[in-house]
Design a protein around this nucleic acid. Structure first.
Lengths: 141, 141
DNA sequence: GTGTATGCAAATGTTTTGCACGTCC
DNA sequence: GGACGTGCAAAACATTTGCATACAC
């Protein structure tokens, strides 16, 4: 199973014309296996735990090129840093302001709204960000 | 008219238990008069043009306390910095990736969605961020 | 007069950049 | 072999903090 993930990663990189390197495979694999969006520091730490040492400049460069190529998405969750997650099913996030947990949520029908915007404002929406902040179930009284 | 804005600002500050200082009045007035969300550097520059000199530490502290008190909102528009705007009618933003213009948009019915989230996930939404990125009318072919 | 805001300088955290060296194809 | 990725160090920004002084109330 590990082997299949690695294989997919190599193919995924080639599909977007990126050279296959150990660092890129490791980052892509990590994001594949992680359910929370990670910031660069967390990515470096996780890789280090696996015995993989990667420079922060390298990881920033990897995240930028992955995001350019559409392999990952760059999120801002009201922190002064970016987080990254693998591109996949469209979803948004529920961020608990008490415990910090980030939960995914799907089925937000923004497409209708984007069409409205196109018609009313002439603005062509390429992408959007939608995040919810509040208190998760476990943190409520 | 100028006088009335200043007056409102003083009152607004007092209503949220903040001391009335020249720097706070100037920032609040500036955000009142500006239609685009501003970052701290832009705030400092605009004040400087008016002959008002304010330290960056001061402006950051002002923006933090204004946001805590609900006078302003802190936005992230996919830049590695915060922008601020006065709290008022709920609206979201259309950010043109070509010319950088930020346009406001209202009537995004997110409330229904927030209720759904409450019911389905037990997550209590306190606030959300919704921003659209794309190409504005003037920048289209 | 007292508590708090401000300015200044320095520290911290995130992201980018230049350059020499190493590695993928 | 040549283009491109990486590591290291330093720079560039954004934001915060400590402390002495100035100001609001």
């Amino acid at each position: 199973m590990n082997i299949s993930v690695i294989h997919d990663c190599r193919q995924e990189l080639r599909l977007v014309d990126l050279k296959v390197t150990p660092a890129r495979i490791a980052v892509l694999k990590l994001l594949e296996e992680t359910d929370q969006p990670l910031d660069v520091a967390a990515i470096i730490d996780s890789l280090e735990e696996q015995g993989i040492k990667a420079d922060q400049a390298t990881v920033f460069r990897i995240m930028n090129i992955f995001t350019d190529k559409g392999l990952t998405k760059q999120l801002q969750l009201n922190e002064s840093k970016f987080r990254y997650e693998k591109t996949g099913d469209e979803h948004h996030h529920l961020v608990c302001e008490r415990c910090g947990t980030i939960e995914d949520i799907s089925d937000c029908n923004i497409t209708d709204l984007e069409n409205d915007i196109r018609l009313k404002k002439g603005f062509l929406v390429k992408r959007h960000s939608l995040e919810f902040f509040g208190v998760c179930q476990s943190c409520q009284p």
